[in-house]
């Protein structure tokens, strides 16, 4: 049964929105859609959004989720905002390397580094 609760943890700090995930596996199409819609809503509510997405809890990520991240990145850019990805597990980072999405996203090793680069 689809979940109706939020799939995100969202905090604000010094004008930066930090987003992390409730789910360890971001694989199911319906979940991915819900997560992307939530993030896009957050972006739409902000002027020049500075967003950090942390993958610290995430063990698995599908290619459909990568597609949504691209859409999120484009939406943030269209609003003259900035996006950082951080805390990506080694194996998921390999997915970004293989797909060359390391060329598209600003990826930081830790949330602290990402926050510093957005400040």
């Amino acid at each position: 049964m689809p979940s109706t609760g939020s799939r995100l943890r969202v905090t604000e700090q010094d004008g930066i929105t930090r987003i992390s995930f409730v789910d360890r596996n971001i694989l199911d199409d319906a979940n991915i859609q819900q997560i992307a819609d939530e993030i896009l809503r957050i972006i739409d509510e902000r002027h020049e959004p500075k967003v950090l997405i942390s993958f610290e809890n995430v063990d698995h990520l599908s290619s459909a989720a990568l597609g949504r991240l691209i859409i999120i990145n484009n939406r943030i850019k269209a609003k003259n905002g900035q996006l950082r990805l951080a805390d990506i597990h080694k194996q998921i980072y390999e997915v970004f390397v293989i797909t060359k999405l390391t060329n598209l996203f600003r990826i930081c090793e830790t949330s602290d580094q990402a926050l510093a680069s957005l400040a």
């Binding site: 599908s62 290619s63 597609g67 949504r68 997915v95 293989i98 060359k100």
Partner: peptide
């Protein structure tokens, strides 16, 4: 090929490449 510069922004087309990798 989803990794070429012109296709990098496409939101789909990476699944088969990941399976192969």
């Amino acid at each position: 090929d989803p990794t070429t510069e012109e296709n990098l922004q496409l939101p789909s087309g990476r699944g088969i490449m990941l399976m192969r990798s």
